[in-house]
Simulated assay, not measured.
Amino acid sequence: MRGLSSLGNELYTGRRSVQIVGRRRTWFTIALALVVVSVLILAVKGMNLGIEFRGGSQFTVSGAANLDQQPAADVVAELSGEPPRISTVGTDSLRVQTAELTSEETQQLRDGLAEAYGVPAEDVTATFVGPSWGQDVTAKALQGLVIFLVLVSLVMAAYFRTWTMSVAAIVALLHDLVATVGVYALVGFEVTPASVIGFLTILGYSLYDTVVVFDKVRENNADLYTQHRRTYAEGANLAVNQTLVRSINTSVVGLLPVASILFVGAFLLGAGTLRDIALALFVGMLLSTYSSIFIATPLEVTLRERSEPIRRHTRSVLEHRARSRAAAGEGQGGEDVAARTEDLTGVGVVAGHHQGHDAQPRRRKKGRR
């Protein structure tokens, strides 16, 4: 813990720096590859839509002593040619999902399942879900997503007073959403209303982490044009380093309970709702931490450096730095002067640096007024 605290302090003060913004091409390539792979998985494998979205009949066998799925498959095969979707629920229940059945077929399947698992017919419940309900849920989810993105774009543009941070945050958010859906399709978990809730929940988490980093970027570059110590990209990279340990700690604290829910829901209880929402949250929270550090801020810097004032300032800083180094090499004590010059570039101690014991405020002694 002491090592992590020391690392966080060194990253915050600038004594140690992880070059994130400077290697943005690498992070962009990784993000693009992840999105492309996710899209290909969706195109080839597709989503495993639950009964709420595709419609059909669902049977739940309660109190079964034997949870073997083959008897249920045999009963459905005698009645319908379409293979059913069978899963265990808890420790003594079985769920069987089939295509839409008539009332007569539903009764026959209930009796067949009751006989196959040796339970009373009353312990086999049957429900029917129409596909229109799933279509309504999908339409409302997409509508909510569009409204959310529009409002977030406007609020962030107004808060940060620049459109670049708004666009970068939205791109990072869409990256998290697409990649999470791709992982969901790869694993093959059913897409249920709980899954949709999980997808929408990670939007807020991703946005929160990105806003924290952007706020530090704005703070470090508040007086950008009045100094020649560092460029906009260096100030942004310092901001990412200053919030790096905080982002990791927040992610770990958030992921541990979600991982526990995922493990309990998937392996112990067999609870589909817990499993569905926990997988979306786990993958989304993990990706949002990555995107806020390696995608959002580097992309914002890329967009910001397209403006002429930022370009002029960057050239001015680099020219001033070159002159300072040249002067440091020609004068006496060149190494000491060069070291002090490096500290003024923004890569060394700049924001939040410790100025020594003598610079700290004096405490008044007790009894003195």
Rank of each mutant, 00 (worst) to 15 (best):
P309V: 04
A33G: 01
A259W: 14
S307M: 12
V245W: 02
A351L: 00
L287C: 02
Y159Q: 01
V21E: 08
T201I: 13
A172C: 08
G130E: 15
A157I: 05
R85T: 08
S80R: 12
R369T: 11
M47C: 06
A351N: 05
R368F: 15
I20Q: 14
E10M: 03
L94I: 12
Q143D: 11
S153R: 05
A280N: 06
D123E: 15
G118H: 13
T106Q: 13
G270Q: 07
A64H: 15
F214P: 00
L299V: 00
L40N: 10
R323E: 11
S93T: 06
V171Q: 07
E342L: 10
I147W: 12
H354W: 15
N237H: 04
L151Y: 06
L186P: 05
E82S: 04
T250P: 00
V119N: 00
L287A: 10
S316W: 05
V264I: 11
L177M: 13
M285H: 04
A168E: 14
V152L: 08
T138K: 01
K366Q: 09
L11M: 05
V245G: 12
K45E: 02
P120E: 09
A233W: 07
R323A: 07
T162Y: 12
V240E: 06
D74W: 06
D68W: 10
T231G: 07
F160C: 08
L7D: 06
F282K: 04
G352K: 10
